[in-house]
Amino acid sequence: MRDLAAGLGYLGRGQRWVARHGRWWGFGLLPALITLVLYTAVLLVLGFRADDLATWATPFADGWGSPWRSLLRGLFTALLLGGGLLLAVVTFTAVTLLVGEPFYEALSEKVEQSEGGAPQGPELPLWRELWNSARDSLHVLVRAAGLGLLLFLLGFVPLLGQTVVPVLACCVSGFFLAVELTAVAMQRRGVPVRERLALLRGRKLLALGFGVPLVLLFLLPLVAVLVMPGAVAGATLLVRDLVPAEGKRPEDEPEPGREGGREGEPEPYRS
């Protein structure tokens, strides 16, 4: 439970950081606003066409009598809209980070400098940074999509699909949001995407404490835009305490009596 509270604490610290640095908050709003407009258009189209898609996907139910045909297609429509919303929540951060790579890289570096200095990241051209971000995001999204499909199918199970599955979906979304948001600071430290996933899987409660509240906030489109800069700042603060600034494979042991981080913070990453 300590990790759960710590994750939530980083989210709050990130929001406080951008509140104290209003110019950087406004700077970080632009990519999220662009992505929000694109996603809103796609979700509106899905909402207007959901009934037609349900009819197209269930031709076997054409001969069913009432109310079974309506119930099946109504359930399919609800799951389709829910799945679309879940996919939007999971991918919103990845797409926003891709659109705003230069913005969030600068924001994350500024957060690190204000906290005592940023590690020297690899000097890469912008196109290479965008390519690396897109490749890593695709790796994460494939995993998220696989779990999302499984949860979508479980949604058809009576009772389970209306109680346990939504909670699991929220947790899955929260975990992958944490993975995506920490990517900027992790890349600066040279931590590859597979190790990022393994690192946060080993600290699931920390990732969930940070990501699940964001999932709930991101369900409100305008709120998603407003909290995105603070989410990037909070993820940077989390990574600073989780991964040693000097690299991802430090050899030095902690000083006696100094194991782990400060109270309420995760222990540094060691591989």
Results as ranks from 00 to 15, higher is better:
Ser66Tyr: 11
Gly100Leu: 07
Thr93Cys: 05
Val142Pro: 03
Ser133Tyr: 04
Trp131Val: 07
Val99Lys: 06
His139Phe: 15
Leu75Ser: 13
Gly100His: 07
Trp131His: 12
Leu79Tyr: 05
Glu105Ala: 14
Leu86Glu: 04
Trp127Gly: 05
Asp62Gly: 02
Val90Asn: 05
Leu81Ile: 13
Phe76Arg: 03
Leu71Val: 14
Trp68His: 10
Gly65Cys: 01
Thr77Arg: 15
Trp68Pro: 00
Ser70Met: 08
Phe103His: 13
Ser133Arg: 14
Glu115Ala: 12
Leu86Trp: 12
Gly116Lys: 04
Leu124Phe: 06
Leu72Arg: 04
Ser137Thr: 09
Phe103Met: 05
Ser108Ala: 15
Glu112Lys: 03
Gly83Asn: 07
Gly83Pro: 08
Ser108Trp: 03
Glu129Arg: 15
Glu123Ser: 13
Ala134Gly: 06
Leu130Gln: 11
Glu101His: 12
Trp131Leu: 15
Leu138Arg: 13
Glu115Met: 06
Leu71Ala: 15
Ala106Lys: 12
Ala88Gln: 09
Arg73Trp: 03
Glu115Pro: 00
Ala78Thr: 14
Glu129Met: 10
Arg69Glu: 10
Trp68Cys: 00
Leu79Phe: 08
Ala134Val: 01
Trp127Arg: 15
Leu130Arg: 15
Val95Ile: 10
Thr91Met: 01
His139Thr: 14
Val111Ile: 05
Glu101Pro: 06
Leu126Asp: 14
Glu109Leu: 09
Gly65Ala: 13
Leu75Met: 12
Thr96Tyr: 04
Thr91Asp: 14
Phe92His: 11
Trp131Arg: 15
Arg69Ala: 13
Arg128Trp: 09
Arg135Ala: 08
Pro102Arg: 15
Glu129Val: 13
Leu86Thr: 03
Arg73Pro: 08
Ser114Asn: 03
Leu124Lys: 14
Leu75Cys: 06
Thr91Ser: 14
Ser137Cys: 02
Phe103Ser: 09
Arg128Pro: 02
Trp131Cys: 06
Tyr104Thr: 03
Leu79Pro: 03
Leu138Tyr: 10
Leu130Lys: 13
Gln113Ile: 01
Leu79Ile: 06
